[in-house]
Simulated assay, not measured.
Amino acid sequence: MSAEGTGGNADTNGRIRTDVAHNARVWNYWLGGKDNYPVDRVVGEQVVEMFPGIGEVARADRAFLGRAVAHLVEDADIRQLLDIGTGLPTGDNTHEVAQRLAPEARVVYVDNDPIVLTHAHALLTSSPEGSTAYIDADARDPRRILRAAADTLDFERPVAVMLLGILNFVPDTGEARSIVRTLMDAVPSGSYLVLTHPTLDADVGGAGNQPAMDFWNANATPPITGRTRAEFLSFMEGLELLEPGIESCARWRYPEAAPVPQFGAVARKP
């Protein structure tokens, strides 16, 4: 499973619901955070009982983010990052990693969860040389995201588009591919796509994921979908995969790590 990302969790009056577990808050709980409610902890613990490795998945996904951002900033000279499906702030957020290495880096975060919005101030700190912005938008509306991000990012220059643990909340694979295509069509050659996604593939330990996903879909929001290696690869059609290609996110450029059932990859737009 993966549960960082997006998906609103408010009633019709815009109030945050505390009676239904929500992905950003449960993910925060698995990462050891405190921005969660009792219902999130109950569902989170039940998932842990069914799939004990979920905490490792959460930590591996977060560590992957740090390695991927560091590589793109240090080795690929990327100075602009669009992080869609931000989730709740934790340690070493995207702008912190990027601006530690390149203070002039510009980062735009995107999420549409009201509880993430309440914590957005933690994401809006920036080095004096750089810039950090937050957009309240749904990942399924990439054109709106691009219009708003253009206030901070220069789409004539390369951008790293980050979709970590977010496409799994778009159940239709065709729609998920369309989101990626729209985003990558808008950025120039030399831009990058950074992805993680949960899988049921047994070679990375995903065989035990399905019961936990079924429980999640019956008890929390938004519903989650696992995908195969081939489906994950299809999101990067037309792009150049960086070494080591598609790997468990725990092992991407860290081969000594134990695999978790969450694919990770970084690809370059030629």
Rank of each mutant, 00 (worst) to 15 (best):
G206N: 11
A218G: 08
T221H: 14
G238M: 01
R229L: 06
L123Y: 02
P222H: 02
L164V: 10
P171E: 14
S126G: 12
L239D: 09
A150M: 08
A148Q: 15
P128E: 06
G130N: 05
T228D: 02
N217A: 04
D214K: 07
N112R: 03
D136N: 12
A149D: 10
E156H: 13
P142Y: 03
L167V: 09
N219K: 09
A133Q: 14
A212N: 00
A207H: 10
P198R: 10
D151C: 01
V159L: 05
R157C: 09
S126A: 15
A220T: 01
E175A: 15
A207V: 06
R177G: 10
V161C: 02
D141K: 10
A207Y: 07
H197E: 15
I145T: 13
I145W: 03
T173Q: 14
V180M: 00
A176H: 02
T228G: 05
I115M: 03
P158R: 11
V180Y: 00
A122C: 02
V194I: 00
I179E: 05
R144I: 02
E129H: 07
A148R: 15
N219Y: 06
T196F: 06
D185A: 13
L146W: 10
T221K: 13
A139Y: 12
F169I: 03
F169G: 07
A139H: 11
T199Q: 08
D201P: 10
V170D: 05
T199K: 04
G226K: 03
T182I: 06
G205S: 07
F232I: 02
Q210F: 00
G174N: 10
F232G: 04
G174F: 00
A150V: 08
E240M: 12
L117M: 13
